[in-house]
Design a protein around this nucleic acid. Sequence first.
RNA 1: UCCGCGAUAGCUCAAUGGUGGAGCAUCCGGCUGUUAACCGGAGGGUUGCAGGUUCGAGUCCUGCUCGCGGAGCCA
Length: 431
Amino acid sequence: MQKITISDLGKYVGQEISLQGWLYNKRSGGKIKFLVLRDGTGYLQCVYFKGNVTEDIFETADRIGQETSIEVTGKVKAEPRAPGGYELDATGLKVISEAHDYPITPKDHGIEFLMDHRHLWLRSSRQVAILKIRHRIVKAIRDFFDGNGFTLMDAPILTPNAVEGTSTLFETPYFDLGKAYLTQSGQLYGEAGAMALGKIYTFGPTFRAEKSKTRRHLTEFWMIEPEVAFNDLNDNMDLAEEFLEYVVQTVLKEMEEELKVLERDTTKLKNVKKPLPRITYDEAVGILKKSGSQFEYGNDFGGGDETIISEQFDRPVMVHRYPAAVKAFYMKRDPGNENLALAVDVLAPEGYGEIIGGSQREDDLNKLLERIKEHNLPQEAFEWYLDLRRYGSVPHSGFGLGLERTVGWICGLEHVRETIPFPRMIYRNTP
RNA sequence: UCCGCGAUAGCUCAAUGGUGGAGCAUCCGGCUGUUAACCGGAGGGUUGCAGGUUCGAGUCCUGCUCGCGGAGCCA
């Protein structure tokens, strides 16, 4: 039997059809019942008149509670008053599994209650819209790289050492080898991949054990990290802006309905087109000083600083050439100023902060050895990484995009916890 | 780890130190066009936990637990 979904209803106007789904909401008059059906593709009001259906069906329509799984039968009618454009003149109603006392009613709830019921909260229209946009963003990301000659290369999740020290990583016992750590970045492995394949991207979960307690942080999140051989910092910024434009414009074009459900004002998203403004760290500090900030030259930007900087522009801004002291050991220094790293962060507008962090990597073996010593990192753990500089080293660059921050920004959400089906935060790992 | 705010019915919230209420949800009744439907009625409480002050504590004080927001760190 062919299954019909609510999203397909336009093809069946005037026909008698059956649909399976869940009871989303219910309203009634004395001799009329309105059952709102949801099936994951949309919402449909099914109208039961007392005279048109059996006594048994009318009683069932009256009795069943929110989220009862049902199969409805009836004639599809175009209905301008309906949000989806269609309505069902219902004749049949089959209960698949009856539900009562569903905890999430169509009224206000607090965040703790909703998070405790995250497995059910996912069914509500807002969450469905977010999950669909998240999926479309993921697909756009993969389409972009796949269509530009990149190879997807998965990096390991269990790793023997930290990229920048071990203090912020989750650790786990690992047989006779001592401890393993959950990855905080696939980048070093991505660099090995770029030397093999030229252009690669990794796409996987990453973990941070930092006790970060803000709207921008999760302990488990997804990151996309392209790495390209022979790309310098400027090439890297070219890639980042083309990539962001593609992702945002694709979502704007294809997810209009979902963005409307979220009541997202898309004015600023429409501006996300290349070229994106590029400013140096020094220029960014100038902006902060001019705004009256107490910011001290040489520090990394905090959340508030990022907001002040990004407010100066009508689209994401790329800030490059940070003080090397606040950046990772593997970043190449600016030949024009050894104190600066060839790093770039992309700051999203509207206070969403850093969504991309990247750099040109140090490709000189001896300089990299120096950095490892300076950072007190165990050289033996990085021997394989140093091999990449011993055998045919080339200039190369890449960046990491935080998926949840990107979803939060595009959807206009208050907090990244709504951007992932089951968020992991310092005080929550359930459901 | 630090700073700030909070915890009262299933949910969202009220309640001057003096008999703990409302809306929604649930149950009963009414309504043939509702769309967070509406109207009438009913049931529903160890006020987060443990102490203290007081004639009397949801309310004031102390400690704890949990949550929320922010800082630091970062995507």
